[in-house]
Amino acid sequence: MSDPAVSWSRVRDRGMIGLRADLSVGVVRKALQKACGLPVPETRRLSVRDDRRLAWMSPDELLLVLPRAGTAPVLAAVAEAMEGRHHLAVDLSDARALFRIEGPGARETLAKGAPVDLSPAAFGLHDFRRSRLGQLAAAFGQVAEEPDAFEMVCFRSVAAHVERWLDVSCRPGSLPGVF
């Protein structure tokens, strides 16, 4: 059961590609943009187009989330676009789990476990953070404003724990009412 102000779901049938390259090089950014179909996001941001998200993970790392069926074609496009350039592109689809947390209480639910300023003034649409949820590594971004909707990625090996955490954090009456 969840609070009417917030709900969560595990998003299935999504592919995830981890990309590593020198993102400070313009030709690399252009090649990745062409292959992924999205501009390389700025620091701690998401680029979003339709059902694709390209997330900034670190100065040399991106995470592309897309429909699972598109994973192999994009990996091939990255290999072609980056030919001769130092890079890594790997299918992480089976190694990661994706969750969607949405509703007016979504921000407060994440704030219960993440050491990130999630106030609306500090964390807005297409902002993205690689952080923690309790003691677990996680990354999340705001993908919609009305209602608030966030997508969160974690290691698949801890997905069952995250599901239990979300169940508890979304219980009726559990939102602190800070935001």
Rank of each mutant, 00 (worst) to 15 (best):
A139W: 02
L110R: 04
G124M: 07
M1R: 07
R45Y: 11
M57C: 13
V74F: 08
S24G: 15
F128M: 02
E108Y: 05
A106Y: 06
L23T: 11
R49Q: 11
L66V: 15
R52P: 00
R29A: 13
A139M: 12
L110G: 10
R132M: 05
R10H: 07
L175E: 07
S58E: 13
A55V: 08
F99C: 05
P73Y: 01
G134D: 09
A72H: 06
L19D: 03
L23E: 10
A69H: 03
G15S: 05
R68Y: 02
L166S: 01
E151Y: 04
D91V: 10
G26L: 13
S7F: 07
R20L: 00
P176L: 12
P115A: 14
Q33P: 03
D60R: 13
A97W: 01
C154F: 00
P176T: 06
E80H: 06
R14K: 11
V116L: 08
L175P: 10
E146F: 11
A137L: 11
M152D: 06
A55F: 07
S7I: 10
S119W: 01
A160R: 08
V178L: 04
E80V: 06
M1K: 05
L98W: 06
K34G: 11
L23D: 13
L63H: 10
S169I: 02
A144C: 05
F123D: 08
S169L: 12
A76T: 14
E145M: 07
R45E: 12
D3I: 08
A77N: 09
R68Q: 12
A122E: 12
P172S: 01
Q142H: 09
A35V: 06
G84E: 06
D51Q: 15
F150S: 06
R53C: 00
P67G: 03
R29K: 09
L63R: 02
I101F: 07
R44Y: 10
S58T: 05
D51G: 00
V6N: 00
S93T: 14
T109C: 15
G124L: 10
A122W: 06
P59M: 06
M57E: 15
D13Q: 14
S47M: 03
E108M: 12
A79D: 15
G103I: 01
P120F: 02
R29Y: 05
G15P: 02
W165C: 03
F155K: 01
P67K: 05
L19T: 00
A121S: 14
C154Q: 03
R52T: 13
A159Q: 02
A121M: 08
A106G: 10
S47P: 03
R129F: 02
F140W: 00
G26I: 04
D117H: 04
A95F: 13
V116Q: 05
L98F: 01
A144M: 04
D117P: 01
D91A: 02
F179S: 08
S119L: 01
A111T: 03
G134Y: 07
G70D: 15
L110D: 11
E108L: 08
R100F: 02
V27D: 15
P147R: 09
Q142A: 07
C154K: 00
A111C: 07
G105Q: 10
C36S: 15
L110C: 09
E146H: 11
A111V: 03
V48D: 02
D167Q: 13
D22Q: 10
G84R: 07
G105S: 14
A81Y: 05
A31Q: 04
R44T: 13
P120Y: 05
L125N: 09
V178Y: 01
